[in-house]
Amino acid sequence: MTYELTAPLTRDAAARLRAGDSVLISGVIFSARDAAHKRLCELLDAGKPLPLPLEGSVIYYMGPSPALPGTPIGAAGPTTSYRMDAYAPRLLALGNLGMIGKGRRSREVVEAMKEAGAVYFGATGGAGALLSRCITSAEVAAWPDLGAEALMRLEVKDFPAVVVIDSLGNDLYDIGPRQYHERHGEK
């Protein structure tokens, strides 16, 4: 199935997605990678407010290249998600419903996703030039000192992704290669 999604997400929209579905995401998402996640969790530790609304949020694991003049953002493809595994369960427990990245997630993250009813999307790694075209505006939401690792608020239009892990814990990284072997009868 292909779904057009609006971000931030509703619980219903997240719940109906299944691993393997294609989605086009439009709306407001936030980009954050290693350093921004560390700071988000430090704020939570200190009991301070976060610089983004977590309820229904979609967080894109991405650090862009600088914007060329007249464009909102440079190349903007996903970074490898497992580096955010240490932080993601805390954000999921507080309302985060969608993560966009690439690569496998830990058992702890998948359990936290099932608990929260959240979804993990995969975007095509290494397709940063194309994906940047789906980002219509980009502004630093916090921590400009982090450069490419700053927390950014992005407006996206028809951002293409695939549901890799759904809210039931189905994982396309297991299903996809298995289906390939079933088609080819080899192991």
């Binding site: 991405m62 650090g63 862009p64 290249s65 060329l68 464009t71 440079g74 190349a75 903007a76 493809g77 970074t79 790694g125 290494g126 397709a127 940063g128 030039a129 940047s132 490419a148």
Partner: peptide, 8 residues
């Protein structure tokens, strides 16, 4: 001029 990938 946009790089192929953001991780340059």
């Amino acid at each position: 001029p946009v790089p192929i990938c953001q991780d340059t």
